[in-house]
Computed example of a mutant assay.
Amino acid sequence: MNSNLKQFVNGFASQGVREIKLKDLLNLRKPEQATREIRTTFPPVTIGSVTLVDQIVLLCLDELVAPSYILEIGTFQGFTTRLLARNSAAHLIYSVDLPPTDTKLIDTLDAVRILRDGSYNDDHLRDIQNRSGEVYLKDLTVDEMKRVRLIKADSTSLDFTAEFASIEFAFIDGGHGYDIVRSDTENVLRVMKHGVIVWHDFSSGIHSDVTRYLSDRAIENRIFHVQGSLCAFQLVGC
């Protein structure tokens, strides 16, 4: 792990949610990485995707932590999985999501409710995934796909200690209810001694439970939210 990142995080004496700028992370990178190129596509405009700023946050933290094993909770259509497979030097990238089903969760779509109701929004995204699958993984190379492990399971009932030996980078973007986010976080901590946890949808107007959970967690931990993004993160074991 980059010593600059540790020093930056440990420079905040008190616990709480700390607002930082993307520039703060970029300034921690090694000078020789300044001209590094990344491979990505234009961010999808569909709901449930990551923005370009989110992508830079993820890739910057991946570079600073240099994980061997990455865990993503919430594959959806595979956009973030693809981003990591094409840019991270990690040995393996695990991505967990629910098994596909033919059961439709929403019969009549309510466009207004999608933007207001977190549970309804998650059901809508689940319906999209059941129809499309991991479309963003279809053109990965054979070598890139060898580094990806798709796990079809409920993350809240999965035995993390049996499934994963050790994780240094986790991206939590599955179910957005308070208890699910808490369960995913606690499960990740069972297999992470050192590394970073990144949560998506912090400060989201739809998935307010993510913000509520991290605000509660920040009472005893230092959580960092990157302004202009939906990403919040915490270093573990530093």
Rank of each mutant, 00 (worst) to 15 (best):
residue 184 D to C: 13
residue 32 E to Q: 11
residue 43 P to D: 08
residue 208 S to F: 13
residue 177 G to R: 15
residue 17 V to M: 02
residue 140 L to R: 10
residue 64 L to D: 04
residue 162 A to Y: 06
residue 172 I to S: 06
residue 182 R to Y: 11
residue 29 R to E: 07
residue 197 I to S: 13
residue 152 K to G: 00
residue 44 P to Q: 12
residue 206 I to H: 03
residue 134 E to G: 04
residue 153 A to C: 05
residue 197 I to Q: 12
residue 177 G to D: 13
residue 121 N to D: 10
residue 97 D to E: 03
residue 211 T to V: 03
residue 91 H to S: 09
residue 4 N to G: 11
residue 176 H to F: 09
residue 51 T to N: 06
residue 214 L to E: 00
residue 178 Y to M: 05
residue 120 Y to M: 12
residue 166 S to D: 09
residue 42 F to Q: 10
residue 95 S to P: 01
residue 217 R to D: 05
residue 170 A to N: 05
residue 170 A to Y: 11
residue 37 E to S: 04
residue 34 A to N: 07
residue 233 F to A: 09
residue 67 P to N: 00
residue 49 S to M: 09
residue 26 L to C: 05
residue 237 G to F: 06
residue 233 F to G: 07
residue 223 I to Y: 08
residue 47 I to S: 07
residue 38 I to W: 00
residue 7 Q to V: 08
residue 112 V to K: 00
residue 19 E to D: 11
residue 109 L to K: 13
residue 96 V to D: 00
residue 12 F to K: 02
residue 173 D to V: 00
residue 101 T to A: 03
residue 87 N to L: 01
residue 52 L to T: 08
residue 3 S to H: 06
residue 103 T to F: 06
residue 98 L to N: 06
residue 135 V to A: 04
residue 133 G to Q: 14
residue 76 F to K: 04
residue 41 T to R: 09
residue 116 R to W: 08
residue 119 S to M: 10
residue 17 V to E: 04
residue 112 V to A: 13
residue 139 D to T: 15
residue 34 A to M: 08
residue 205 G to H: 11
residue 5 L to G: 02
residue 9 V to Q: 02
residue 66 A to Q: 15
residue 128 I to C: 10
residue 186 E to R: 15
residue 70 I to F: 07
residue 135 V to W: 12
residue 88 S to R: 01
residue 4 N to H: 10
residue 38 I to G: 00
residue 218 A to P: 01
residue 165 A to W: 04
residue 69 Y to R: 14
residue 96 V to Q: 01
residue 92 L to V: 09
residue 184 D to F: 14
residue 152 K to P: 01
residue 238 C to D: 10
residue 147 R to K: 15
residue 206 I to S: 02
residue 85 A to N: 03
residue 46 T to R: 14
residue 105 L to T: 06
residue 118 G to E: 14
residue 53 V to P: 06
residue 76 F to R: 09
residue 45 V to R: 14
residue 212 R to I: 12
residue 130 N to M: 08
residue 46 T to N: 11
residue 97 D to Y: 02
